[in-house]
Every structure is written in structure tokens, then in C-alpha cells.
Amino acid sequence: MPERTREHGHAEGRERDERGGPLKRIGLAEVYNPSMKPTLLPGDQLVVKYGASVRRGDIVVLRHPFQHDLLIVKRAVERRSGGWWVRGDNPLVMNDSREFGTVPDELVVARAWLRLRPPRGVQLSLASVARWSVSALRPLVGPVRPRGGASASGVLSGVFSRRLRAR
């Protein structure tokens, strides 16, 4: 049984908007729960690209296979017959392919491209602000890394045309 909408690394929102143009393919998702810890934390924002090709190791937003109105954030682990095997980076949370199996391609909504981490707590010094600013923006696309994170280069451009609420 899928968990409630406020649990475990989910996203909720509309995948498409009614506007046209090239920016229609870029959006934001907000992470709410810990299924992708330590890579993503609750409160992190994701810049996502709709319709982007998915590679092994990418973080993706997808429709839950048993509850299509629920969007979830997971890592694409490997390509299998019938779609993608996906897992959260947090080994203690199992709402992933270990529960629901392979996810068909048509349920993959977007690929995460960049993580934006908001400041946590009060910034008391210039040094703490500097440390936060170095870690606040992190690319999420590129070569496959061991479980727990992916890194690579990526350039943020344009304005975001829609926003998902990711859990």
C-alpha cells in the first residue's frame, strides 16, 4: 500500500502547465521527506527537466506506480525489462522498486538537474554564510557515483515555468 502523501521523498503537483515555449520543459520540485537522504534533505529544491532522457544514477521525479496522482523522487538504479528500477538513497526507507517493482517509462515525469539547498537555521557569521553558499547549489547530473550521491557539471539557465511539491 503506498504511504500517505506527506511521507518519504515524494513530490506532488502538476507535471505540465498550459504555457508553451522552451521553458515549459524546466520546473522546480521541493523535497519534503527523507527517502533521498543524504543526497537530498527535506526543504531542498530541485531544478527538474521534463521529458529528459534518464541514465543510470540520475535522480528522477516519477508517478507512484500504484497511486498515479502521487509524485515521488528516487534514483534510477538500472534499466530493466519494462522500465526503471528505482531506489531512495536512504536505506531505511523502502518506498521504491523493492516494494512496487520496475517503473514503466511513461511514469517517469522529470530528471533532477540541480539541487538548491535553503539556509538552515540562523546564519550568525560571515564564515557560516560562506560555507552555506558553497554547499547550497549542487549539480545532480553526470557520471554515476556510489549510492549516496551523484555529481557533475551543469549550468542553470532560464526561468522556471512551473513548480512541483516533492516529498
Rank of each mutant, 00 (worst) to 15 (best):
L28E: 07
S125V: 02
A29I: 11
V144A: 08
G83W: 00
G88A: 09
R75V: 04
P139F: 06
E78F: 01
G158M: 06
L156Q: 05
V47A: 13
V73P: 10
D69A: 10
R145S: 14
S81C: 05
L116M: 12
R145K: 12
V93Q: 08
G13L: 11
V159K: 04
E18S: 10
D58R: 07
W85M: 00
V48W: 02
L71T: 09
H68A: 13
P119T: 06
E30F: 09
A152I: 02
R4K: 10
R138T: 14
V129H: 07
P34Q: 10
S135P: 00
N33D: 14
R145D: 07
R120S: 15
R117S: 15
N33I: 00
L126I: 06
W84E: 11
K49L: 14
H64C: 10
E12P: 00
V109Q: 01
R115E: 15
G154F: 12
L71A: 13
R163H: 12
V86T: 13
V108I: 15
R56G: 09
A112P: 07
R147M: 11
A52G: 08
A130H: 11
L140I: 13
R167D: 12
S157A: 07
G142F: 12
G121V: 13
P22L: 12
I72C: 14
G148M: 03
E12A: 08
L124D: 06
R117T: 14
L107T: 00
H68K: 09
G154H: 06
V93Y: 13
Q45S: 04
E15S: 15
V86H: 06
I26Y: 13
V144T: 02
P2N: 03
E78D: 04
G142H: 12
